[in-house]
Design a protein around this nucleic acid. Structure first.
Lengths: 205, 205
DNA sequence: TCTCCGTTGCACACCAGTGTGCAATCTACT
DNA sequence: AGTAGATTGCACACTGGTGTGCAACGGAGA
């Protein structure tokens, strides 16, 4: 008997294995989010699995971290390029970006802490493309006089999304309150006047 | 033979011991600043001393960290209370505060990273008084309509000096450029209009 | 039923850091 | 010269995490 469809209906073995793998990744985000120094054992038990099993899916801790980071980069760049496609002003684009990236930033907030520490360099490297896209957006805003120029675009963008992550990491992180706060605060620090900032955010649903 | 002066002229033994102790503390700031996970051994060799000697002065790693933190708290609160004594507007006070606290913040920038990690809770606790003083200042600014109110004073002050430390930790950290950038950026995020912010900073020497 | 294979449980070696103990050494003070 | 005390060098035990090896279990698929 051959496969009846084009896609070779994954055997349930494979599917359950992928589920395990995904669960480990998901849980790892939570656990590391609470404590960036959590070990493979902590992640394993949180995922309802034995440490040895985690090593079955990810040969090393760095491998797991890399996979998480790649996921994050994929999701963020997707949002960022989509948003950048519009020809709106840079500040409006920024607002839409934060609104859409907020859940993602909240999920992956731990990566900012992971940039320091043992595997920081590897993580940092993978995050590079995001940094560039972000700097481009800020640069565009500076060139059209929408954003302040007291700092070079590269650094300003770093600080700005550092703030977003910081708020995503704080008590406000849940609900729309955090998103609003992060958006307004980052706009302010990008040099957008308060009235304009509030108007822009007010437009958001 | 009794002491000839009121102050019992420290024997040079005691003095050189204190010098060693201070050198360890100073060097620890540098080493930990580059790598918050540096061990007692790294600190010791950087101080030109053996690991065992460090343990002679500080019974445990936590003890060393605590001492560093206490130093930082002392220095910062000194600046903060002094600055707060003036009856200037909150934004002007903030500018003076950043200007004077900048070298201190730069020296102790590692403490922000240390707030997470194994001994984070202890460090965090010691840093409490600084947080309060800072929140008070921001609150004063909000009450007199000088600072924005899109975030509660407690969080806004956290984010604001998070930014200051972030810049103190970046490439700009040296020279007056970093201080200017940190001041303006933090003012912007506190809701001070760009023109006013630049004017305020321009006043500074 | 039998086989494959993800999973488990336990073993181990390895590494890095922490904190302690103690004899030896060096030096400022008496 | 003698002594007290800071420092050294080396020892050790302990902890906690990493990564690997392997036999055994258990369920889905042939």
């Amino acid at each position: 008997m051959c496969n009846n469809g084009v896609v070779p209906t994954e055997s349930s073995r494979v599917r359950s294995m992928n589920e395990t793998r995904d669960r480990i990744l998901d849980v790892a985000l939570d656990v590391l989010g609470e404590n960036p120094d959590a070990g493979m054992g902590d992640i394993a038990s949180a995922a309802g699995v034995v440490r040895r099993t985690v090593y079955g899916h990810f040969p090393s801790r760095l491998d797991l971290l890399r996979t998480l980071t790649e996921r994050a980069v994929t999701e963020v760049t997707a949002v960022l390029t989509e948003v950048n496609a519009s020809d709106a002003e840079a500040d409006a684009t920024w607002v839409e970006f934060i609104a859409r990236v907020w859940p993602v930033a909240h999920r992956y907030r731990v990566l900012l802490a992971l940039r320091r520490g043992e595997y920081g360099e590897a993580i940092h490297g993978l995050l590079g493309p995001v940094d560039e896209l972000l700097a481009d957006l800020v640069k565009r805003g500076q060139d059209s006089d929408v954003f302040a120029q007291h700092l070079p675009a590269g650094i300003l963008s770093q600080v700005a999304y550092g703030v977003v992550f910081a708020i995503a990491d704080s008590d406000l992180s849940n609900g729309t309150l955090g998103a609003r706060a992060a958006t307004i605060t980052s706009l302010l620090m990008l040099g957008v006047p308060e009235t304009r900032a509030i108007a822009l955010v007010g437009d958001q649903p």
